[in-house]
């Protein structure tokens, strides 16, 4: 009696299935969130109501509970959810369905045989929402909205390893906005900030989905270009240089003339680490900055 009340009052979903995967118990939380009352679903196969669960992974976990008395954990990261339920605060969440963390385990009868399995369903939508916000804050540059240096460096390591392993091309472009301090000094930081945002948006629109644009420092940007060899990266760099110089930049009603210096490097078999590729692009940028408004490639 007490346990039935607890099962119905608890703020999580509880489902009990028999060996034929028919619903034996469906708590009030499940009824309220799924709009399926217990008396409608109890005694019937779970798959009549949730056909998407009738797939090898779910069935394998059910078998492992009945065979070994095992526990199975359905993480939100991999599964998102087991039951397609509405999010509680549906107007304030980016998810179509409630994000869930579910656990499955055995319920034994007196002779210790596994007679039923239970499924507990926890609503983790809010936690996931905050987690995604944190991940975004940790990977994006607050001013421009493009990736930050930390994210770029992690991606560079991964892409460098991948290009080495598969012998695929990888190039890196480093960009510096020429005389940018003057923009800030002459027109104020708000105009400078707007210019950085406008420049990042413009460059981003020119890149492929697989390329990665990040803000590396104050007015320095980097483009990581997987599957791109040196000549193609040089062409892109040249196009960005021309595009920047030819654009009439207007920020907060101030007309600006911007130019960029660009260093380009491509990954080579003899490079022992991603740091070398970064150093080569940086060296090329240093050389480009000697003349301004130009592209230098490391060969």
């Amino acid at each position: 009696m007490i346990f039935k009340q607890i099962a119905d009052m608890i703020n999580m979903g509880l489902v009990v299935l028999d060996e034929d995967l028919k619903v034996h118990f469906w708590n009030r939380w499940m009824a309220l969130h799924s709009d399926i009352p217990a008396d409608e679903i109890v005694g019937r196969s779970l798959f009549e109501f949730f056909p998407d669960l009738n797939e090898p992974n779910f069935l394998r976990n059910c078998r492992s509970v009945f065979t070994f008395g095992n526990f199975a954990f359905f993480s939100q990261k991999l599964h998102r959810y087991l039951f397609p339920l509405r999010p509680v605060y549906s107007d304030k969440t980016p998810f179509d369905y409630m994000q869930q963390s579910c656990t499955m385990g055995p319920i034994r009868c007196r002779d210790n045989r596994v007679q039923f399995l239970f499924l507990s369903v926890s609503d983790v939508t809010e936690v996931v929402k905050y987690e995604e916000q944190l991940v975004e804050m940790n990977s994006k540059d607050a001013l421009t909205g493009i990736y930050n240096r930390r994210f770029f460096e992690t991606s560079l390591q991964t892409e460098f390893k991948r290009s080495k392993r598969h012998g695929r091309a990888l190039s890196l472009i480093m960009i510096d906005l020429d005389y940018f301090k003057r923009v800030n000094d002459l027109h104020g930081h708000q105009v400078g900030d707007d210019a950085l945002r406008a420049f990042a948006t413009r460059v981003q629109s020119r890149l492929r989905q697989s390329d990665l644009l990040a803000r590396y420092g104050g007015e320095e940007f980097v483009c990581l270009l997987p599957e791109t060899d040196g000549p193609a990266a040089r062409d892109l760099a040249e196009e960005l240089r021309r595009m920047t110089a030819e654009t009439q930049w207007v920020c907060r009603e101030v007309e600006l003339q911007l130019t960029i210096s660009v260093g380009v490097a491509q990954s080579r078999p003899e490079m022992d680490g991603f740091e070398t590729l970064l150093k080569k692009a940086d060296d090329a940028l240093y050389e480009a900055k000697a003349g301004r408004n130009r592209v230098v490639c490391y060969d």
């Binding site: 394998r60 492992s64 070994f68 008395g69 095992n70 526990f71 199975a72 954990f73 034994r108």
Partner: peptide, 25 residues
Amino acid sequence: GNILIGACVGKITELLNDVVLFSPP
């Protein structure tokens, strides 16, 4: 890991008449 560990620990404890709980792997 979950399935292998569950199977092996589960079988030993079953033979010795114990029931164990598992943390998420």
